[in-house]
Design a protein around this nucleic acid. Structure first.
Lengths: 243, 243
DNA sequence: TCGGTTGTTGTATTATATACAATATTTATT
DNA sequence: AATAAATATTGTATATAATACAACAACCGA
């Protein structure tokens, strides 16, 4: 708020959006949910991909807008959601993107401040059918091309936010794993998040001494070698231990 | 951005502001810079205090707006500045605050999304003279009453952000200390930030084995007991050690 | 049964964190 | 000059966590 509000402000061109960086893990690498505009639109091809997001409604809280975007995308209502940064650079939207926006919304746009959210999703979950003219893809982090707006930057910042969040809350990364997972999956996930190799024995030792990761009497199925034991994350034990 | 932009949006009432939580440390406790509206304004007393902040200008980046607010407050141009959260709840502004805003800005306001910034400042630095009708105060965290808008919440979140930032960057907290400081000041600062007592000997041991904290041949002056040695933080050594 | 592939496990070493109190230095007081 | 008052300074023993490192086990398929 202001020490000195200017009375000649022209603020009618401020728009506010939310964008969601939804991350998944396929057992090998991290992937991000991207929307692709398919088909032609007025003779111009909009091939770029972008993050799911939307302008916020007039009466809508920021968090609620992000929830809505994710609900439309996944059909789920209880998704973990973490606001991690706001982006408002004047040049964050290229001329081409701006043209597309004005063409789509039939509104004059000058600046769009976006509030970026991070969400971790089990990659096996089925997704809702996207709105007509759009495709949804789980895109591996190494396969992301140049995205619309400043979305490449948002994704880079989101990965950092995952790391910080996981440091604070050791339960966070389990949102990326299936309910039953192998030690290899968990280790690979840590290697991808922190970007460095983990020693097999030391990692196993560290994990098995956590009581909230419980070994099951089951093993993975259908592999052409010795099957690995399955583990699960026990949220109740975790919560109890946190006190 | 959007999968499905609505074409009937009424977005003209979105306003965007920045608010700055400026923290200082007096050797004993953390303090926050607050503005107080003094005097009467149309017969109504606005006694509440609030964080420094302002609506952003039409062509202004978010970070630049925060820099501007801090420059007006301190006269300094190179202040550390960390964006930590955006606030956009519909009910974050009380009816009374809204009336004050509309009275002050002569604009109809419906929703104000604010981007909150955190800044650490040496408390000894002289402040600029505030705009007429305002006073600036360093207020101890325990002495903060009910602030305007949701500013109490911002401050609470800001303290948490300091902790997280200090975990990532051990040089961060030195922004709060004078150039030459005693071990007691440093230890007290850590106790205030992390909210728990630090063992005197262990703390001393841990700190002295950091090469970027260098002991000086000086001692504090004018105390009625054994004078403590002074230390300083060496940013160059710190940067070198980070690689 | 044998080769190929991946899963599983322990020990020794080093570094870091924790618990804990006596002595030193300076100023103020008598 | 002696002493009281206040705070500064320092070490050792123990526990816990991090790291480095490789042999054997289990299963599949040929």
């Amino acid at each position: 708020m202001s020490t000195s509000f200017r009375q000649d402000l022209q603020l009618a061109v401020n728009h506010i959006s939310v964008d969601c960086v939804v991350l998944g893990f396929d057992g090998e690498q991290l992937r991000v949910l991207l929307l692709k505009r398919v088909g032609e639109s007025g003779g111009q091809e909009f091939g770029d991909m972008k993050l799911p997001g939307d302008l916020i409604y007039t009466d809508e809280n920021l968090d609620d807008a992000a929830k809505r975007v994710l609900h439309e995308l996944t059909g789920m209502s209880n998704i973990n959601l973490l606001q991690f940064k706001a982006y408002g650079s004047k040049d964050r939207i290229t001329k081409k993107d701006m043209e597309w926006l004005e063409q789509t919304t039939h509104q004059h746009m000058e600046r769009i401040v976006t509030i970026a959210y991070l969400s971790l999703l089990r990659i096996s979950r089925p997704l809702a059918t996207p709105p007509a003219g759009n495709e949804v893809h789980w895109v591996g982090l190494d396969e992301i091309g140049t995205l619309a707006f400043d979305h490449n930057i948002l994704i880079r910042d989101a990965i950092e936010a995952v790391r910080h969040r996981a440091d604070i809350d050791p339960s966070y990364l389990f949102n990326l794993l299936p309910q039953k997972f192998t030690m290899l999956q968990l280790r690979t996930l840590y290697e991808r998040i922190y970007g460095k190799a983990q020693d097999v024995r030391n990692f196993h030792k560290k994990v098995t001494q956590l009581d909230y990761i419980v070994a099951l009497d089951e093993r993975e199925q259908g592999v052409a070698h010795r099957a690995a034991r399955l583990y699960r994350f026990d949220r109740k034990i975790f919560r109890r231990a946190r006190r």
